[in-house]
Amino acid sequence: MRRIPLSALVGMTVTGAFFLAAILAPVIAPYGMAEIAGDVWEPMSSKFWLGTDAIGRDLLTRMIYGGRTTIWIATLATILSFSVGSILGFTAAVMGGWVDQFLSRMNDLIMAIPSLIFALVVLTVMPVTTTTLILVMGLLDSTRVFRLSRAVAVDITVMDYVEAARLRGEGWGWIIFREILPNALSPLVAELGLRFIFAVLFISTLSFLGLGVQPPLADWGGIVKENKEGLVYGIPAALVPAVAIAALAISVNLVADWVLNRTTSLKGGRG
């Protein structure tokens, strides 16, 4: 294990802090999630570190709980998209033939519609619950993972050790999980970071449009929506989630960059 560069360390620390705050939200939040603790849009003070929101709830508390919701949904959606996307992608690469053709063309078809538009179409008829959101986001995003994992796996399936496994008479399951997955892990891990960030941006956008996490549950996109009227009066409460989203996005990117660089140098620049 070589030394971890400073940027990756910073990224890991900040990302870790976000996740820790999300997990420990009920412990570290100074007030209750929906508790009206003060006046409307109070400025920052020792009592309210970030001020209060449009109906007098502590903004820091809302941010911590909001992060919990946003990160939770984004994490589950990412796990779903990676499970579905990579298993289907590997299957397409290993099986080849019409299975590959069918899966790839279906994937192209879904990718031909912008994700946000497709999500909006689906959310018109589905009840907007956390489960629906995770399913819709995860499945739509799995198309991107499918592309990547298929491309990576196609390179690996022609390797001698995969052929050896085939000649040994191993089943598809063994080839996918024991031969391809371990060798395709590094590029997928780097992609994991980017997909997670995309999921955070996606859920925030949906909530901002009023079609994501429903109140009184807090989430970062929703906090922008709840406090946007204040901006016109010069109250920057709606911009606080922006800082959080940007910090999380950049720190995850730093880690992903490091993982990607590490993989490229391991494989002699092929990635």
Binding site: S204, V232, P241, A246
Partner: peptide, 20 residues
């Protein structure tokens, strides 16, 4: 840094700075 922000956040930052 502009990639790391969702569109609506860029929108409100621009609105806050340039309009308010």
């Amino acid at each position: 840094s502009t990639i790391s922000l969702p569109e609506f956040v860029v929108g409100y930052i621009a609105m806050f700075l340039l309009a308010v």
